[in-house]
Simulated assay, not measured.
Amino acid sequence: MGRPDSIPHVAIKGRGSTTHLPGRFESTVSEAVDDGWEAEEGEEFLAPRLRTEVRAETARSIISRNNSPDVGFSQSVNPYRGCEHGCSYCFARPSHAYLNLSPGLDFETKLFAKTNAAQLLRKELSKPSYVPQPIALGINTDSYQPIERKFKLTRQLIEVMLETRHPFSLITKNALVERDIDLLAPLAEQNLVSVHFSVTSLDPHLSSKLEPRAAAPHARLRAMRRLHDAGIPVGVMVAPVIPWINDAELEAVLEAARDAGASSAGYVLLRLPLEVAPLFRDWLDTHYPDRATHVMSTINQLRGGKDYDSQFGTRMRGQGVYADLLANRFKLARRRLGFDAQNSHWPKLDCTKFERPAPPKADSPQGSLF
Rank of each mutant, 00 (worst) to 15 (best):
Y267D: 11
L250A: 05
P289R: 12
E211T: 15
V276C: 08
K152C: 07
I181M: 04
E249N: 07
R225H: 13
R179F: 04
P278Y: 05
H205W: 04
P278A: 10
A265P: 04
L221Q: 00
D247R: 05
H166L: 01
M161S: 13
A257H: 06
A219P: 00
R165C: 07
N246I: 11
R155H: 09
H218R: 02
V236A: 01
Y288T: 14
H196Y: 09
K173Q: 03
E275P: 05
E249A: 05
N191R: 05
A230C: 06
A185K: 12
L192P: 13
S207G: 02
D180T: 08
A260R: 15
R220Q: 06
F280S: 03
H166W: 01
A292F: 06
Q156N: 07
K173H: 03
A262H: 02
A248R: 09
T200I: 10
M224K: 13
P212T: 11
D247Y: 08
A219N: 03
D290E: 13
P278C: 06
R222C: 14
W244Y: 14
P217H: 01
R281G: 12
M161E: 04
V268E: 13
D203G: 05
E159M: 02
S198P: 07
P212K: 08
R155E: 09
E163S: 06
E211G: 11
P240G: 12
A185F: 01
R258E: 03
A292I: 11
R155A: 08
L183E: 01
F168A: 07
L284K: 02
L157K: 09
A252E: 04
E148Y: 12
S194C: 14
G266E: 01
P186V: 15
R281L: 05
L176V: 14
Y288L: 15
L269D: 01
L221I: 15
E163Q: 05
A188F: 12
R281Q: 11
I245Q: 00
R165K: 14
D290R: 14
A262S: 03
A216G: 01
D282N: 08
P217R: 02
N174I: 12
P289C: 06
R155L: 07
